[in-house]
Amino acid sequence: MHLVYPAVLSSLLFCVGVYGVLARRNAILVLMSVELMLAAVSLNLVAFDVWLGDEVHSGQVLTLFLIALAAAEIGVGLAIVLLVHRERGSSAVDRLRALADRDGNEPDRAGPEPGPEGAASRETTTT
């Protein structure tokens, strides 16, 4: 099998992932898109490894590490996204707007838009 097939496939996968990250609103889907990108990388690595006949199999070794770290990453990421989801009832990325450049001069930008759960008011009472 020529190298072109896996290479092109992996590039396509990667592009799909990039598109997903850029176009998706839901944090979980963004996360999945990132994983897709990583999968593309793995595919590329293995393909190159086999193609080049690398005697120390750097490509495959890297893929192993890649898998492990992708798992760790997804674990950490999901944890954070879940936290946000639990408090906001949404994991839409584009609704995370409490931190952003503002025009106004409101003295306290800390308060996000008051969500249905009144999250904003809660956080100030955590003393």
Binding site: I67, A68, A71, A72, I74, G75
Partner: peptide, 9 residues
């Protein structure tokens, strides 16, 4: 995920 994936090594 952590353990199983690490077991790959």
């Amino acid at each position: 995920v952590i353990f199983a994936v690490d077991a790959v090594f």
